[in-house]
């Protein structure tokens, strides 16, 4: 599963290795990201997180499972080449499609640009394979 986010003259590519995007607790979630058209001088940093959040009637809650922060000074990599990441899927919460509450999982990448607004792209995936609820 690949998501590409582009600004006017730059872009972010975030890709999960598993195409169907369904994971179970204990599975390894892995993927890669790279940047296009962003020079080192304008790159302020990057933050990649694996998180769940709730949607629906209630106020949204959020839980961060894993997070990686990249600073250009500390991590002198060429980000035009794919940067890999991986983590183990936790046992809970599972993705859920209810009436008042929906639980979503995403991999979110935030690119901080100097002098420009941040670039954010996220790839949704599912934990578990619960069917959506239907009205009884």
């Amino acid at each position: 599963m690949t998501i590409v986010t582009r600004g006017f003259d730059s872009g972010v590519v975030l890709r999960l290795d598993r195409e169907h995007g369904v994971y179970f607790p204990g599975d390894t979630l892995s993927g890669q990201f790279y940047l296009e058209g962003i020079s080192r001088t304008e790159l302020g940093g990057a933050e990649l997180s694996v998180l769940w959040f709730t949607e629906g009637k209630g106020t949204s809650d959020l839980g961060i499972h894993a997070v990686w922060r990249f600073q250009p000074e500390e991590c002198p990599l060429d980000w035009r080449w794919p940067q890999r990441f991986s983590t183990i899927i936790p046992r809970a919460p599972w993705s859920y499609e209810g009436f008042l509450i929906k639980i979503r999982w995403v991999v979110r990448l935030r690119i901080l640009l100097r002098g420009k607004s941040d670039l954010i792209c996220q790839v949704p995936f599912k934990v578990g394979n619960l069917p959506p609820l239907t009205l009884a």
Binding site: G58, W94, L100, I101
Partner: peptide, 14 residues
Amino acid sequence: PRVMHSFVSAHNQI
């Protein structure tokens, strides 16, 4: 076999 587990967060609960 296919039911959601109990869940609790600050503003939502199953």
